[in-house]
Amino acid sequence: MDLNVLGQPTRIYCGGRSFDRRLPAVVMIHGAGHDHSVWQYQARHLAHHGFAVLAPDLPGHGASAGEALTGIAALAEWIEALLDAAGVARAALVGHSMGSLVALACSARSPRISALVLVGSVAPMPVAAPLLDAARSQRARAHAMINQWSYVPTSHIGASACPGLWLPGLNAALMARQREGVLAADLAACNAYTDGLEAAARVGCPTLVVCGERDQMTPPRATRPLLDALARGGAAVRLHTLAGAGHAMMAEAPGALGDALRDFLGSTTG
């Protein structure tokens, strides 16, 4: 469906079901240079199991209008505006990579967030200088670098879980569809967000951290400071590791991630 958020037409994927605000709401926030479609399977899974799913294209991404917002804090504010536009009082947030920082920042500032899921997340999330440079001036090179680091070696060969889809090609095409400057703005936002651990210490809602066992972008061992910060703040924190998956775990372990999300979110809605 399309909603007007802060005056801008915004594309929101609802997992193939009509949005029903009487159900527990879940907002699924994509990562840098992506759009809602990275959540295709997990969004459908949650939408078919009792959740009202809102998987937006962030401003300037995919089919949403406007310019890409230039900071994690601004994106976190935008998520609250999205909840207002959808008429949702409380929602769980699920974010991947850059989207996880947005979800974290939003959860730290808003009492409306009922549960938090951080997928492929570390805080802080520094971005390598060569990637930042490439995103500004050599997009194809940036896409190649992201693909190289997003998938486990077997995914670079193929044998995808999704019959007939060549995942590295799919991701390259998805990134190529985004408007000029979007990826650079997203990666700069990740790199500049240094408040992640402080934000984590302010999160009060139940939180799930999902790691890809073989994630090279946000390796499991690097999540420890984030887990510790969340625990310090008093949030009930769980860690779930997806066997064999890399950073692109929505595509590499679509069923296992969907199950993990549903189990956790189900436990938080009673």
Binding site: R44, P163, G164
Partner: peptide, 27 residues
């Protein structure tokens, strides 16, 4: 059936051996 998870159901729609060919040519 709901496409909540990918996988093979019936060979007219997809098949593991055929999927290897599909991915290889796509690559």
């Amino acid at each position: 059936f709901n496409l909540e998870r990918p996988g093979h159901v019936y060979a007219r729609i997809s098949n593991p051996t055929v999927a290897v060919l599909e991915e290889r040519v796509a690559a």
